[in-house]
Design a protein around this nucleic acid. Structure first.
Lengths: 230, 230
DNA sequence: CGTAGGGTTGAGGTTAATCAAGTATGGTGG
DNA sequence: CCACCATACTTGATTAACCTCAACCCTACG
């Protein structure tokens, strides 16, 4: 059990630089939990007691509007941490989290982690870097919500996913969305209907083709030209 | 000169807990600069060399779209720091910054500051807290862009400003927007025309009255009910 | 075979961006 | 002191994006 936690920690950039003794301290304080499909990890406003490292499955981080609509801020995949930022805030979690599918998650107690920071400036700085990445991600999201239409945001997502799997984007490349379309719609700040139409339009224009969750790039050049800045 | 810098540092929550020697080190590495109206501090993508503490004036932090439209992410006022997050990233500044009016700014070199972090875990943690606040701010902005209409976002701003000056929001309270309306429009993710109409509508409905930059609360209850969550 | 969940499509309405023009104000130069 | 201009802001008409609601398709599955 503990060895699984330990092993998982080494896969995360946040912990990989830690010394043996720190890893041990964290490992013994952390626990591994399985969340069933649609089970909640925490709700917005809950007091922050821990942050998380995904081992398997998918965790969605989202906010609910007054009338029950949800906006997905982030989808955490295996080897990713989330809610690291929240442990330094005063208030509760700024968003809610729930398992999209059955997921294994390592729960790292806030206090244990913070006490490590006292003695390890390097860890603290790695943490700062980690949070800075979030910050950039957030500013990018704000920007795209403020300026780009749904179609462009979708293309941005497709291209970035393609970058993840291959190094660049070329015609004929093929990848799995890896995420329910309704979830992706919400992540892109829209609703399934509008998302679906945007996808249809890209297919009609022969920029890409879609078969279920599989996307094939047909016109990399045009796709890239849609999202390029200045 | 140095004494002004020192004094300004003590007013910022980020530095106020620092020891005498650290403050001295920062003070001697930092410089104070005056930026004229509309002068740029840095552009998006520029290599990050420093972060900033505003002494006087206003600095807007914004992103430009491909076709030249700008979206204001933040307006930094006296005693506030900005771009702290950027100094931990790998890439350049994620946004641009420019003086709205003639402004005095303390420039704190990235390297000097980071070297302090090595020896001072407390400072590092305060930094983490500071960035966590940004993170929350960002998630709130994303949420409101995704879900709320312009009018509601405007009311949210009015109420939060009112909270800044008074503790709560009551009929008859009066405050200065303290920011150009076009800038505020951009900050709210819209354009001056739409902003103006939203303000007009609130006046017509007798929720508030506006005289130039002066806003008077007329119906606090209704305003609050517009923004309350769940 | 019936139902549920994920996804798509269509019609219609609302919000907000665009385009165009107009008002108010303050400063500048004659 | 006034004409001129720039800037900030406002207003109106038009258009485009996208949300809502409703229906429908498809596949999996009990």
């Amino acid at each position: 059990m503990n060895s699984r936690i330990k092993q998982a920690m080494y896969t995360s950039p946040l912990f990989s630089g830690l010394g043996e003794s720190d890893i041990d301290k964290l490992t013994s304080a952390a626990s591994i939990r399985v969340y069933g499909k649609r089970e909640a990890l925490f709700m917005e406003g809950d007091p922050v007691e821990s942050f998380y490292l995904v081992v398997s499955g998918q965790i969605k981080v989202y906010k609910l509007s007054a009338d029950g609509k949800e906006h997905v801020l982030h989808l955490a995949l295996p080897n990713q941490t989330f809610a690291e930022g929240a442990i330094f805030g005063f208030a509760g979690y700024p968003a809610s989290a729930e398992a999209v599918e059955s997921s294994e998650v390592i729960v790292i107690p806030k206090e244990t982690f913070i006490s490590l920071l006292d003695d390890d400036p390097k860890l603290c700085q790695r943490m700062l870097k980690e949070i800075a990445i979030w910050l950039r991600r957030m500013t990018d999201i704000i920007f795209s919500l403020a300026f780009k239409d749904v179609e462009t945001r979708l293309v941005g997502y497709v291209v970035s996913q393609c970058h993840n799997e291959y190094q660049d984007v070329q015609n004929g490349m093929r990848f799995n969305l890896g995420i329910e379309k309704a979830l992706l719609a919400s992540y892109l700040g829209t609703i399934p209907e509008t998302f679906s139409r945007a996808l249809r339009k890209l297919q009609n224009n022969k920029l890409l083709s879609v078969d279920g969750p599989i996307v094939t790039i047909l016109d990399a050049e045009k796709l890239l030209s849609m999202i390029e800045k200045d």
